[in-house]
C-alpha cells in the first residue's frame, strides 16, 4: 500500500521548509526530532513511510517516520554519516527541508483479523513505532499482538519508556532481548529469532512486520518460515542508497524493485530471491 506524496507545482525535487520544534537525545548517537512545516498543513502519513530530510549545503537523507502528532512529523535519526550527523545536531528552531512522505506502508489494514507479530532490531523499532501505535489504537481489529525487540546491550534499547508503557498493556505481549549482557541484566539474552517460540501466535493466521539490520531480518524471516508463517505475510523494511526517493535516480534498485517506491516495506515472498543474491 502506498500513496504518492503531495508534490508542489514546483516539482518533485524541491523541498518544503520545515522547522525543528523539539529535539531529544535518545541514545549516545541517536536523536529524535519533531519537525513542523514553516507554513501550511502537515501531509498525511502511513506507518512505515519515510521522508527526505534536507540540510542546506550538506545534503538530503531518507529517514523513516517514527511517528507523527497533529502538527509535527517525528523522526528518530542515528548519526552515521555527514547528513545524519548534521540532522542530529539541529537545535529546536532550526530550519530544514522536507520532501515526502514516500514509500510503501506496513500492511496494518490488510492484517486486520490476524495475529500480528512485530519484530524490531536496534533502531528498527523507529519505523515500526507508527504501526505499533496504530495496532494499539485499533486493538479490537486484531488477534494476538506480539512485540519482540532485540538490542545490542541494555543501554542501547530505544524508547525504553514507551516500551514500559506497552509492557503494561495486558493485551500486547512484549519481549526484549539483548545480543550481549552481563548477569546484571535480568531480561532475555540471545538474538531476536530466539524469542519467536515464546510468543503466542497462530502461524497460519499471522502477519509479521520486521525491521532491523538486513541480516537480522533475513534470519527472522527464515525462522518464521520454519514455524509455517506464510512468506507472503512476512513484511520487511529494506534500505538502499537513495537520492531522489521517487524512482528517477536509479540508486535504490534492488533487483527489479526501486526501494523508494516499491518499498521500503516489501513482502518476503517477493524479495526472497533477491535477498539470496550477494551485492545486488
Amino acid at each position: 500500500m502506498s500513496m504518492p506524496a503531495p508534490i508542489t507545482e514546483r516539482g518533485a525535487f524541491v523541498p518544503t521548509p520545515y522547522r525543528v520544534i523539539a529535539a531529544r537525545r535518545e541514545l549516545g548517537d541517536t536523536v529524535t526530532l519533531n519537525i513542523a512545516p514553516q507554513a501550511g498543513a502537515l501531509p498525511a502519513i502511513l506507518p512505515g513511510q519515510f521522508n527526505m530530510l534536507y540540510v542546506p549545503g550538506v545534503g538530503e537523507a531518507a529517514i523513516s517516520l517514527s511517528g507523527a502528532t497533529e502538527a509535527a512529523f517525528i523522526h528518530t535519526i542515528r548519526d552515521v554519516g555527514a547528513i545524519s550527523h548534521a540532522l542530529t545536531r539541529l537545535p529546536p528552531g532550526a530550519s530544514l527541508g522536507l520532501r515526502g512522505p514516500f514509500g510503501t506502508a506496513w500492511p496494518v489494514a490488510e492484517t486486520q483479523g490476524r495475529d500480528v507479530l512485530i519484530v524490531a532490531g536496534g533502531l528498527g523499532l523507529a519505523p515500526l513505532r507508527p504501526a505499533i501505535r496504530h495496532l494499539l489504537a485499533h486493538r479490537e481489529r486484531y488477534g494476538k499482538l506480539s512485540l519482540l525487540i532485540g538490542a545490542r546491550t541494555p543501554p542501547d534499547i530505544l524508547y525504553p519508556h514507551e516500551i514500559a508503557q506497552w509492557r503494561a498493556n495486558l493485551d500486547l505481549y512484549v519481549a526484549v532481548t539483548m545480543d550481549r549482557a552481563d548477569a546484571m541484566w535480568h531480561g532475555h539474552v540471545g538474538v531476536v529469532p530466539l524469542l519467536l517460540p515464546r510468543a503466542d501466535f497462530d502461524p497460519a493466521n499471522t502477519a509479521a512486520l520486521i525491521c532491523g539490520p538486513e541480516v537480522m531480518m533475513r534470519a527472522t524471516a527464515q525462522a518464521l518460515l520454519g514455524m509455517a508463517v506464510p512468506a507472503e505475510r512476512i513484511h520487511l523494511s529494506l534500505e538502499r542508497n537513495m537520492k531522489c526517493a521517487i524512482g528517477l535516480c536509479g540508486h535504490c534498485q534492488f533487483g527489479a524493485a526501486f526501494i523508494c517506491k516499491d518499498g521500503p516495506v516489501m513482502r518476503y515472498d517477493r524479495i526472497a530471491p533477491a535477498l539470496a543474491v550477494r551485492e545486488l
Partner: peptide
C-alpha cells in the same frame, strides 16, 4: 544459527 547471528553483532555499527 542464533550463535552465528550473535557473533555478527548486527547492532554494533550500521554495517548490516
Amino acid at each position: 544459527n542464533a550463535a552465528r547471528l550473535q557473533v555478527l553483532d548486527v547492532y554494533a555499527g550500521p554495517y548490516y
